[in-house]
Design a protein around this nucleic acid. Structure first.
Lengths: 249, 249
DNA sequence: CGAACCCTAACGCGGCGTAACGGTCC
DNA sequence: TGGACCGTTACGCCGCGTTAGGGTTC
């Protein structure tokens, strides 16, 4: 029975640093079994148990203050506290899943082309950040049918759709300054955009059904893949596209 | 064009606090477009773009210092940096999955019985913390066949096995002080334990094949569901069990 | 006696929140 | 002129790591 250890020995035995042990002593979380007259801390095997408790709860990311409270707790409150902690873990997992999605989008766009735009990456990440708000906004302003269609589509084809949308936007950004709004190249892009919209929102979706006021209400203000100038020119492109469509019919 | 905003207006517009904007100014991460003679900060719409970049990278949990470096970066290094960030996210996810497992074990044990033991919960959490080391230790000292069997079993029946193991240990802890080592109740427990071992390590596993020295090498020292006294008494129980087995055959 | 250990005190980290106290704008 | 805004300065948070400077043990 090696009953009394110095702080150094105890630290080696447990893998907890001397500084940490002194800190736990200081905040009253765990005091050593004995303290000599000269102030030296001596630990025994009995100190292992509370320390292992602390390590276990720290692993679950309890703050030290909570650990102090939780250590001498009853079953009921322990259960409750663990349930809370579980909730916290789950929401962190959700957060991480979102982050992972954002990174994956960004990486797949970066791999796609030579000269990517940081603004574009930013846009992608923001579209993940604001995903929930966007959906909420849509369910306020778009027909329920379209929202359902989108949710369904996203479940299975999210990465694919994000990628091709991103690719299309990049092409538009590249060619927009090179051609007139009426040029076949840009008109083709307009057509592609509308097809993508139909693909994601369903064939029954029509832009005309949306109240234009809805767009004054868009949540993530000012985060767009396009500059103000680009958006203006794009507006012209779509105007011409609409006119030609009406003319043909 | 409302081009110049005070810090208050800009904060409302972007949802970023005044304190944060001043802090970003202070550390040179993002300075306002203009500063008046009296020292007031004025922001314009142009300031939105770098701020959105910052928000996006913060979302990916980049530290501010990295953001400052990353903002004017080339494609190649941006890609590399994102790949690193992805790695970090994935390992955090793994960590969270482990935490979740630990909490779930603990909760399922707490739900199982009336009078649970904090030491027992601690043991469960530590068994998750040390999972990898345990497996590594086993692959050094146990036959490969048994390790493979265990890995396979765990893939499908982990929670179930953990639960029943926990239940058995709790029963043992409860009855151990009440009976003599040779008592049928305790002998039955010994039998159950050996059956559980066979169930998880495979029917071909035999304790005698293991070098006793292996147990001087166990990684998570001193974290056991039993006290030293309990372990001693348990030793006697198993000794008697082994003698009776040999006698019968 | 000296090396190896121990002690306390104090700063630093990151990203702000939150006073406290005073100047500036309309 | 007064109230709403703005400014700087500085402490606090959390869980220690990391000196710095000195005492104790064998």
């Amino acid at each position: 029975m090696k009953s009394a250890m110095s702080i150094g020995e105890f630290a080696k035995l447990t893998g907890v640093s001397q500084r940490t042990l002194r800190y736990y002593d200081q905040i009253g979380l765990m005091k050593p079994s004995h303290i000599s007259e000269s102030g030296r801390r001596y630990y025994t095997e009995r100190d292992l148990i509370p320390l292992q408790h602390i390590i276990a709860l720290k692993y679950l990311e309890y703050p030290l203050e909570e650990i102090r409270i939780a250590l001498p707790q009853t079953t009921a409150s322990l259960k409750q506290s663990l349930a809370l902690q579980k909730q916290a873990i789950v929401s962190k997992q959700e957060h991480l899943a979102q982050m992972l999605k954002a990174v994956d989008y960004s990486l797949s766009v970066l791999e796609m082309n030579e000269e990517p735009d940081t603004q574009f990456i930013t846009f992608l990440i923001h579209s993940v950040i604001r995903e929930k708000e966007h959906l909420h906004w849509m369910s306020r302003h778009f027909p329920q049918q379209s929202v359902d269609f989108l949710t369904e589509t996203m479940k299975t084809r999210e990465l694919e759709i994000t990628r091709s949308t991103a690719e299309l936007m990049q092409q538009i950004k590249r060619d927009l300054p090179l051609f007139e709004p009426g040029h076949p190249r840009l008109q083709e892009y307009a057509d592609k955009v509308l097809n993508m919209v139909k693909e994601t929102l369903g064939p029954d979706f029509h832009m005309e059904a949306i109240n234009p006021d809805a767009f004054n209400d868009v949540p993530d203000l000012h985060v767009s893949p396009f500059t103000a100038e680009e958006e203006l020119k794009l507006g012209e492109v779509f105007k011409i596209y609409a006119e030609r469509q009406n003319g043909e019919e």
